Amino acid sequence: MLPDDAPLHGIFAKKKLNVFPYQLRLAWDRLVYSGTGQAPLVVYSEEEMRTKIATTPGSIGYLSEIKIDGSVQVVHINE
């Protein structure tokens, strides 16, 4: 995922997950510190996100539409 202060992360968290970025971070922190989960990898650009998605089997992520290319498969989320 992108850092909490990245604009796209805020849009994704609010519109698709219905939480604020800090709430998502708190949920991951609870899982990590309780030993029941592992936080997602943080990347620092959409280009890095696209590369990680394309080269890591089973990974998922989010990108701006203009950053999508043939290296990743798109899954549409209906609202």
Rank of each mutant, 00 (worst) to 15 (best):
G35L: 05
E48I: 00
R25M: 08
P3Q: 06
S71M: 01
A39H: 02
S71C: 06
T56C: 05
N78R: 05
L41Y: 00
I77N: 07
A39Y: 06
D29Q: 13
S45N: 10
K15I: 03
S59Q: 13
V43N: 08
L26Q: 13
T36W: 15
A39Q: 02
A54P: 08
K67Q: 14
D69Y: 03
T55D: 07
S45V: 06
L8C: 03
L63I: 06
E79K: 04
T56F: 12
V74R: 13
P3I: 01
A13K: 03
G58Y: 04
V75W: 00
R50W: 06
E79V: 04
V42F: 03
I11M: 10
H9W: 12
G61Q: 00
D5V: 04
P40M: 06
V19I: 14
Q73C: 07
G70A: 09
V75S: 01
A6M: 02
Q73T: 13
M1D: 07
G37T: 08
R25W: 07
I11D: 14
H9I: 00
H9L: 03
A13W: 09
G37S: 10
V19A: 00
V74N: 05
V19N: 04
G61C: 12
T36R: 15
L31A: 05
V74C: 08
L24S: 12
S64K: 10
E65S: 08
G58H: 00
M1A: 08
Y62M: 14
A54V: 03
A6Y: 05
R50C: 02
S64D: 15
A13N: 11
E65Q: 05
G35S: 09
L17E: 13
Y44E: 13
D5E: 14
I53L: 11
I66T: 14
V72Q: 11
L41I: 03
S71Q: 08
V75A: 11
S71I: 04
D5K: 00
Q38N: 06
M1I: 09
V32M: 01
I66E: 14
P3L: 04
V19S: 02
Q23R: 12
M49G: 09
Y62K: 13
V43T: 13
L17Q: 11
K14I: 04
E47A: 15
G10A: 13
N78W: 02
V75K: 02
T56S: 12
R30D: 07
H76Y: 12
S59Y: 03
V75G: 09
D4S: 14
G35F: 05
Y62C: 09
E47N: 03
Y44T: 02
N78A: 09
G37D: 11
K52D: 08
N78C: 01
L8A: 12
Y22P: 05
W28I: 00
I60Q: 12
P3F: 02
G37I: 12
A54S: 14
V32F: 03
K67N: 14
L8N: 04
V19H: 08
R50V: 03
D5M: 04
V75T: 02
R50Y: 02
L31D: 10
E46S: 06
V32K: 15
R25T: 15
I66S: 15
P57E: 14
S34V: 07
I53Y: 10
W28N: 15
E48D: 14
M49H: 11
I66P: 05
V19E: 11
M49Q: 08
P57T: 07
V43H: 07
V72T: 00
K15M: 05
A54D: 01
V19K: 14
K14C: 03
Q38D: 09
R50K: 15
E48Q: 12
A39M: 04
Y62V: 15
S45G: 09
G35K: 07
